[in-house]
Design a protein around this nucleic acid. Structure first.
Lengths: 147, 147
DNA sequence: TACCATTCGTTCGGTTAGCTAATGAATTGA
DNA sequence: TCAATTCATTAGCTAACCGAACGAATGGTA
C-alpha cells in the first residue's frame, strides 16, 4: 500500500486547487448570469423545494445550509414573486409550510433552460473526455457540499 | 454512435446540475472558512499574483475576472496587511506594479495549509473512485471558469 | 506644440448574499 | 402552571461584487 503513506489525499494540494476552483467558477457563473432572471441562490432554494416537497423554512434552511434569517429574506422574495406559497402549519402555528406554485415551477424550468443556453454551450465545447470528467464529478462535489 | 444523438451535452441537464453544484459548494466552502484568515477572494488573487509574477491591477483583474473597482479594494486590503506591494510603473505613471511580499507568500502558504486541514480531510474521506473523479475534474472546471 | 481620444486606477453609490444577536409567539415538559 | 425550548422574524452588520463618473497620464495627430 504505497499510496496509503501519502500525507495529502489525491495528489499535491488537491484541497487548495478545489478551493480556488470554487471561488473562480462561482464568479464566472455569477457574471454570466442574466440579471433579469432568478438568482443562483433562488434557483437553488426553489429546486430543493420542488424536489423535496413541501418544507418548513427551517428544513429548507438546513437543506440549503443557510441560516434562518437568510432563509426568511429568501422566502419573502420568492413569495413576493409568486413562486412559492406560505401556509401556517396545521399542528404548530410557529411553523410555515412552503410550497412551489405552478408559476414557480415554470420559473424554475425557465431558469434551467436559460442556464442550459450558455453553460450547456460551454460544456458542449469541451472535449468528450473533459465532459465525462465533469459528469463524473458533479455528484461527488454535491456530496462534498452537502455532507 | 447512439450518444451522438443526445440533444444536450453530457446527459440530462448537466448544466443545471453544475450550476446548483457551484452555488452549494461555494456556500459550503465559505461557511467552513475560518474568519481570521484570508478570504477566498484574497487567496485567489494572491495565488494568481504569486503564480504569474508582478502584474498591474488591470492585468490581475482580467486574470481574476473581476472589475477594476473591485480590484482596487482588494489591492488596498492586501497592501494594508502587507501581503503585496504597490510600485508605480517605471514607464507609465498611470499604472502600478503589484508584487507579493514574503509575508504575502507566507500567508498564502498558511491559507493553503488551513484549507488542507478541513477540505483535505473531507476529500480523504471520499472513496478512491470519488477522489479520482474530483482530481480529474478540478482542472476542467478551472478551464471552464477561465476560458 | 496644442489638442483630443484613450487608458489607468480610483471614488462613489448600490446590490446581493450571507452572518449574529435579539425578539415575540407558540409549543412542550416537568 | 411555568420554565425551557423552538420557530420565524427583525435589525444591523459584513463581504463581494457591480456600473457610472472622474482625474491623471499617455499617445497620436494636426
Amino acid at each position: 500500500m504505497s499510496d496509503a503513506d501519502e500525507p495529502v489525499a489525491g495528489g499535491p494540494d488537491l484541497a487548495g486547487r478545489v478551493r480556488l476552483m470554487v471561488v473562480r467558477l462561482r464568479r464566472r457563473v455569477q457574471s454570466e448570469h442574466s440579471r433579469s432572471a432568478l438568482s443562483g441562490v433562488q434557483i437553488s432554494a426553489l429546486d430543493s423545494l420542488s424536489r423535496f416537497g413541501p418544507l418548513t423554512p427551517r428544513e429548507l434552511a438546513v437543506c440549503e445550509r443557510i441560516q434562518p434569517p437568510t432563509m426568511t429574506k429568501l422566502i419573502a422574495a420568492l413569495e413576493f414573486d409568486g413562486l412559492i406559497t406560505r401556509e401556517t402549519h396545521p399542528r404548530d402555528r410557529r411553523q410555515l409550510i412552503l410550497r412551489t406554485t405552478p408559476v414557480g415551477e415554470q420559473a424554475l424550468a425557465a431558469a434551467v433552460r436559460e442556464t442550459e443556453e450558455w453553460l450547456g454551450k460551454r460544456l458542449s465545447e469541451l472535449s468528450e473526455e473533459d465532459r465525462a470528467a465533469v459528469m463524473a464529478a458533479v455528484d461527488v462535489f454535491n456530496k462534498l457540499a452537502g455532507g
